[in-house]
Each structure stands twice: as structure tokens, then as C-alpha cells.
Amino acid sequence: MNLQSNWIAYALASAFFAALTAIFGKLGVTGLNSDLATFIRTIVILGVCCLIISLRGEWQYPDTISTRSWLFLILSGIATGLSWLCYYRALQLGPVSKVAPIDKLSVALAILLAVIFLGEKLTWATALGAGLIVAGSVVLVLF
């Protein structure tokens, strides 16, 4: 398996680290303002990304990045920041076992938005999978 080109491996790693994010975040936000906790997390992420980009020699000049890329990366950053602020507040107020499943509804929402805005094809398998994610989240939260 070529890890550089295998998106599934990266997606599984993302899921694993997202799970750790919930556990570590719940422990870290205890007794701390959730917005400040998000800020600290963001600084750490910035440092880790800078280190990785530096080690790989992947820096590039800002003027080589298209205006369109800048716009959508800025919008993505705003959405990420708002997501993280809400997520940490939810973790502070509720149990991980309830917060994480609701947060993962983002998978079904992303599929829906990709169909509407990106023109991605909605197959029966994708629709069923998204529906099962929604159903699973409802079961985990309500029961």
C-alpha cells in the first residue's frame, strides 16, 4: 500500500485522531473557558503544521496561490474555527458519548452539500450510508 496516494489510510488516520481529539479535548477543557481551550489547540495545530511543512520543504510564496484558493481556504478556516468553538463548548457541557455522534452528522451534511454545491453524484450506497450515520447518531444520542 502506497501511503502517499492511499486516501483511505489518511481518512482512517483522520478518524483515529478525531477520536483522540474528543477524549483529549474533554479532559483539557475541564475547568477552562472553552474558547480559550480552542485558541490553545489552534496554536498547537499551527505549530505542528509549520513543522511538517518545514521538514518537507513545502513552503510556497503567497502570490503563487490563486485568489480562488485564498477565498475558499479563508472560508474553510472560518468554518473550521466556528466548528471547533462549538465543539469544545459542547464537550465542556455534555458527555463525549453524546457530543461526538452529533458532531459526526457532519459526514451526512457534507455528502448533502457536496451533491448540492459540487455536483457530486448521490448513489444509493452513499445515501444509505449517510442515512445510517444519521440513524446511528439519533440512537446514540436519544437512547
Rank of each mutant, 00 (worst) to 15 (best):
A37M: 05
T38E: 06
T38N: 11
I40V: 15
I40R: 06
R41Y: 14
R41Q: 15
T42S: 14
T42K: 02
I45S: 10
I45W: 10
I45Y: 10
L46I: 15
L46P: 02
L46K: 04
G47R: 01
V48D: 07
C50D: 07
L51V: 15
L51C: 15
I52F: 13
I52N: 08
I53S: 03
S54Q: 11
S54C: 12
L55Y: 07
L55Q: 13
R56M: 12
R56G: 09
G57Y: 05
E58C: 08
W59C: 10
W59Q: 12
Q60A: 06
Q60E: 09
Q60R: 15
Q60W: 00
Y61S: 13
P62G: 05
P62L: 11
D63A: 07
D63R: 04
T64W: 01
T64A: 11
I65A: 01
I65D: 03
S66A: 13
T67E: 04
T67P: 02
T67Y: 05
T67C: 03
R68T: 14
S69A: 15
W70M: 11
W70V: 09
L71D: 00
L71P: 00
F72G: 04
F72I: 13
F72D: 06
F72C: 08
F72S: 08
L73N: 10
I74P: 05
I74T: 14
I74Q: 05
I74A: 14
L75G: 06
L75Q: 02
G77S: 11
G77V: 05
G77D: 10
A79D: 09
A79H: 07
L82W: 07
S83G: 12
S83Q: 11
W84K: 01
L85S: 13
L85G: 02
L85D: 01
C86L: 14
C86Y: 01
C86I: 10
C86A: 15
C86W: 03
Y88A: 04
R89V: 10
A90D: 04
L91W: 04
L91I: 09
L91K: 08
Q92N: 13
Q92V: 03
Q92C: 08
L93N: 14
G94R: 01
P95C: 01
V96W: 06
V96M: 11
V96A: 15
V96L: 15
S97W: 03
S97E: 14
S97H: 11
K98Y: 05
K98H: 13
V99K: 01
V99C: 05
V99D: 00
A100D: 01
A100E: 02
I102S: 10
I102P: 04
D103S: 13
D103H: 11
K104T: 05
L105F: 12
S106M: 12
S106N: 13
S106L: 08
A108L: 06
A108Q: 06
L109K: 03
A110G: 12
A110H: 01
I111P: 00
I111G: 02
L112R: 00
L113P: 04
A114F: 01
A114D: 09
V115S: 04
V115D: 06
V115F: 13
V115R: 02
I116P: 03
F117D: 04
L118K: 07
G119D: 08
E120V: 01
K121L: 07
L122S: 07
T123W: 01
W124R: 08
W124L: 15
W124S: 12
A125C: 02
A125M: 10
T126M: 08
